[in-house]
């Protein structure tokens, strides 16, 4: 019975990704046709793209919460690659999409004590300050450079996550001095095993140092940073996977805010792209949070990997000019 449920969950995850992949491929060919058509006469009616955006981002919102990533990490390569919008506006929207998804999921995760404010606040301070710097650099970068770096980074993270053996409940023999003085620790009930799990973290200074890089990259690429937050919180600092996923999601609501303001102030935000995407991702995230509380960490982990492989390959191949 348990096996069949597990199989069903994995099957749903695989099917969701497959549907998304096929849909995006279909949009890709349509988009290319539309762009060709645009060069000679005119594009599709203006309302087509906002409608498609809404549907796509709703699906992304569900998958992003379950994967512990910001919607932005999926949004930027997918919308940037398959829709007729400039990457500047896509990155601006991507940050706001990731922000909105995190805002929608945040209250539920905090109330359930899955997201830890004590863990998030020190990390958020460093990441959000770095994200401002990243946003300023990112707006000066050429699009193909952004895509190559983004794709390579995501695939690197996927490799780490795919090869890690202990990530659901990492062992932390002794918390470091910094985490002890900040009292970064907690207890949560892991529904999938029916037990209460006590957690603490180690290697806090190293983790915080890495969040400088993560913040810069989040702002630079115009995406959320869940893809990097989760491995650092989980694999390096030793927080349980579910705490890492939830805290990462909440963290994005702070990190992405600072970078999003830079894009907003530079006029890289277009309401026609942003609003349908935000509404879609927020509604999708709410559905995702309800599923997250009962999902198994392993299922979440594999869903993260599947999503990131797709998004990473897409960005890399586009940047290299192989998959235009």
């Amino acid at each position: 019975m348990i096996r069949s449920r597990k199989f069903l969950k994995v099957l749903i995850a695989v099917l969701s990704i497959a549907v998304l992949f096929i849909s995006m491929s279909a949009f890709a060919s349509e988009t290319q046709e539309a762009v060709k058509e645009a060069a000679s006469t005119s594009t599709a009616p203006w309302w087509v793209w906002p409608l498609v955006l809404f549907i796509v981002t709703f699906i992304l919102g569900i998958l992003a919460v379950l994967g512990g990533v910001g919607g932005g990490v999926l949004f930027v390569p997918i919308v940037g690659g398959f829709f007729p919008f400039n990457i500047d506006f896509v990155r601006g929207a991507g940050l706001l999409v990731a922000l909105a998804g995190a805002l929608a999921a945040g209250p539920g995760l905090l109330k359930r004590n899955l997201a830890s404010l004590r863990l998030a606040l020190p990390v958020a301070l460093i990441a959000s300050a770095a994200a401002i710097v990243g946003a300023m650099i990112g707006l000066a970068l050429k699009p193909h450079v952004v895509n190559i770096l983004l794709g390579a980074t995501i695939l690197f993270i996927v490799t780490i996550m795919g090869t890690a053996k202990k990530s659901d409940f990492p062992k932390v023999p002794k918390p470091d001095n910094l985490s002890q003085s900040l009292q970064i620790m907690g207890i949560y009930r892991e529904e999938s095993i029916g037990k209460e799990v006590e957690w603490q973290v180690h290697r806090t200074p190293q983790g915080l140092a890495l969040f400088i890089i993560i913040g810069i990259m989040a702002g630079m690429f115009g995406l959320g940073a869940g893809w990097a937050n989760v491995p650092v919180l989980n694999l390096l600092m030793g927080a349980p996977l579910k705490i890492s996923v939830a805290t990462s999601k909440f963290l994005l609501s702070i990190t992405d805010t600072s970078a999003a303001w830079v894009y907003l102030n530079q006029g890289a935000v277009l309401p026609m792209i942003v609003v349908p995407s935000i509404v879609g991702i927020m509604l999708g995230s709410m559905v995702g949070v309800k599923i997250l509380a009962k999902a198994k960490p392993k299922a979440i982990k594999w869903m993260v990997i599947g999503l990131l492989v797709f998004a990473g390959l897409r960005a890399l191949l586009k940047g290299l000019g192989i998959w235009k």
Partner: peptide, 12 residues
């Protein structure tokens, strides 16, 4: 060659 929303932000 691109629609207005396909322009870079500073051009738009």
């Amino acid at each position: 060659m691109v629609p207005y929303w396909g322009m870079r932000a500073h051009e738009f």
